[in-house]
Amino acid sequence: MAQRHVGEVLSRFESAGFTVVGCKMGVLTPALLREHYAHVASKPFYPEIEGFMSSRPVIMMALEGDNIVAKVRDLLGPTDSRKAAKGTIRGDFGTEMMKNVVHASDSDENAKIELARFFKAEELFNV
């Protein structure tokens, strides 16, 4: 958002055939981030993640499409933006390993958990 890539990122998702079924802007609280990143919250690098993720509002999106988790992750590229190929979202817009322009679920199971964490049922509009 700070680099003004929201429209381009959204366009790439839609161009890839995904449907946006939820979208909103908000600030992620330390408590919400600790819950979301519980699997790494005890790691020495976690404070950097929390600091970055709570430093500005974020856009939260729910996408729908065939094989969505794998296809979105391919579109994003690897977590370390420095290793992401040009043409991927992270490769084109990311600058560091810990500061990514986009987060994505890593499994269908986690996608369901994360959708429930960030969206109320009435904020999702399946078409």
Results as ranks from 00 to 15, higher is better:
10 L>A: 10
54 S>P: 08
13 F>L: 13
110 N>T: 15
125 F>I: 11
115 L>V: 12
41 A>D: 01
124 L>T: 10
22 G>F: 08
63 L>P: 01
122 E>C: 04
6 V>C: 08
110 N>W: 01
52 F>L: 02
82 R>Y: 03
88 T>N: 08
1 M>Y: 02
61 M>A: 12
62 A>F: 03
55 S>A: 15
127 V>N: 08
40 V>S: 00
102 V>N: 05
16 A>M: 10
116 A>P: 00
82 R>W: 03
26 G>K: 06
93 F>H: 11
110 N>M: 11
73 R>S: 11
119 F>E: 00
121 A>I: 02
121 A>K: 12
89 I>N: 12
126 N>Y: 15
89 I>M: 13
55 S>E: 08
16 A>N: 12
1 M>W: 00
91 G>K: 11
35 E>P: 00
52 F>D: 08
66 D>I: 11
27 V>R: 15
59 I>M: 14
117 R>T: 12
55 S>P: 07
45 F>G: 04
13 F>W: 08
125 F>P: 00
82 R>H: 06
112 K>L: 08
8 E>T: 12
2 A>E: 12
78 P>T: 13
14 E>P: 03
97 M>Q: 13
38 A>F: 05
112 K>G: 05
98 M>H: 14
29 T>C: 09
6 V>Y: 14
48 E>D: 09
7 G>I: 12
24 K>G: 02
64 E>K: 14
74 D>H: 13
106 D>H: 04
20 V>H: 05
56 R>T: 10
20 V>A: 10
35 E>N: 06
76 L>W: 11
98 M>T: 13
118 F>M: 03
25 M>N: 07
36 H>C: 02
113 I>F: 03
23 C>G: 10
51 G>H: 08
2 A>W: 03
16 A>S: 15
24 K>E: 02
54 S>I: 01
84 A>W: 07
76 L>C: 13
50 E>I: 01
85 A>S: 14
38 A>R: 07
31 A>P: 02
28 L>E: 03
57 P>F: 06
21 V>N: 04
90 R>I: 07
67 N>H: 14
120 K>M: 03
65 G>I: 09
71 K>Y: 06
21 V>L: 04
97 M>R: 15
99 K>G: 03
67 N>Y: 06
50 E>Q: 07
121 A>Q: 05
92 D>A: 04
94 G>A: 07
74 D>R: 15
100 N>E: 07
104 A>F: 05
91 G>Q: 09
106 D>W: 04
71 K>V: 01
60 M>T: 15
74 D>M: 12
55 S>H: 08
77 G>N: 14
56 R>P: 00
86 K>P: 14
53 M>C: 06
112 K>H: 05
99 K>Y: 11
39 H>T: 05
107 S>T: 03
20 V>Y: 06
42 S>N: 12
69 V>T: 14
30 P>C: 06
5 H>N: 12
126 N>E: 10
115 L>C: 13
53 M>D: 05
17 G>Y: 09
123 E>C: 07
125 F>M: 10
52 F>I: 04
5 H>C: 07
107 S>K: 02
